[in-house]
Amino acid sequence: MLNGIPINFYIMLSAVLFIIGVVGVMARRNAIIIFMCIELMLNAVNLLLVAFSTLHNDASGQVFVFFIMAVAAAEVAVGLAILSMVYRNFKTIDIDLLSRLKN
């Protein structure tokens, strides 16, 4: 059965998910939540890449999504290590408090 969904719907869905991630990054103070919103943005882009890969019947898009997942995993590992070190030194991960960079 053919997948009769216009590509515009996928673009809209990805745009909405991406913007939810952007709003989350701007509106929250917890650094871990901000990380999670960045993951949400990455996933919105991944979804659009897969949709276009299926549209053009080209496997390169899906391979690219695979690489994005690898990079995201590396980024999360290093980022959470940094956050845990920051928490050990400052006892907080509130970015409004951390933005002073001193004390």
Partner: peptide
């Protein structure tokens, strides 16, 4: 309004992606 035709494509299978991954990429 281009329709996404996913039903008949085989590119998402492991065999196909593995071939692309280990040759082109």
């Amino acid at each position: 309004l281009q329709l996404v035709h996913g039903g008949s494509s085989q590119i998402g299978l492991v065999k196909n992606l593995g071939k692309v991954l280990f040759s082109e990429f």
